[in-house]
Amino acid sequence: MSARINAARINAARIGVRRGWHEFVIGLRSPQDQTFYLSMGFGALALLWFNRDEALPGTTLTLPQVALPSLLAGIVMFSIVIGPAYALALEREDGTLLRSRVAPYGLHGYLVGVGTLTVVSLLPLLVIVLGGSAVLFDGAVPGDPGRWGLIVIALLLGILANLPLGFAIGALVPRIQQVTTWGMLPIVGLAWISGIFGDMTRLWDWVQILAQVFPMYWLAHLMRYAFLPEAAVTNELYGVWRLGPGIAVLAAWVVVGSALATLLVRRMARRQSGAAVAEARDQAATQYVR
């Protein structure tokens, strides 16, 4: 019996990956999603392009070189947290979640699907920004395989550490409209204090310490470590590269975050029923009438 349950779980995970991929492909064909990828990707490139001649004081580095790794970390964090938060908040109201829950291990598959879609949706953005930067800005994208190994590890850890945050926010927000308040705003704030948009060494001490609790700062730090020459360390907090602590904090978020998100998502799923979906539908209808 337990062999059969394992087989069913693995089957559901596989279905979930296919589900995420299917939704990604559907999205690629939709003008809405295309516009999103292109405007985000080329917007980021434009930002770097207009500052391409700005050199960082005291170094030979240009702004695109310094900003690219932090920007990539910001894109990863934003997509990975907001993606599942919106998906869960929206799809439990519109009945998608309930529909999956009726099938055996359907919730399992659904969640794997949301995760897959979120991660796969990152690819077009990363390709546009990384590919564009390699072409446009000399020395912005490293060619050395060792550095690329590190970039891949940092990205994987960063994705896995941030994903549970997205699921947790999606499970906690009472309604889709609150994702902006409880998802977007904290992420933008976190990006700000984590040095995504600029120098964080000038912020207050306690803000710097707060930033180091969250995975965002560490992902950006590891990305800068992988992208930038050794000497760029002068711009980092405390003037040192911290590879070990960075990996440890991200790994801790993977473990603790996953456990917490699992609890929250289960609690949320238990509360779903046809009547709950019908209620959301009626509320949406009255809002539309107003």
Partner: peptide, 16 residues
């Protein structure tokens, strides 16, 4: 979940 497999539920779809 094995029980789920034996039970069918017809839901009223909306916009999922």
């Amino acid at each position: 979940e094995a029980w789920r497999a034996r039970v069918g539920v017809v839901l009223q779809s909306w916009r999922d």
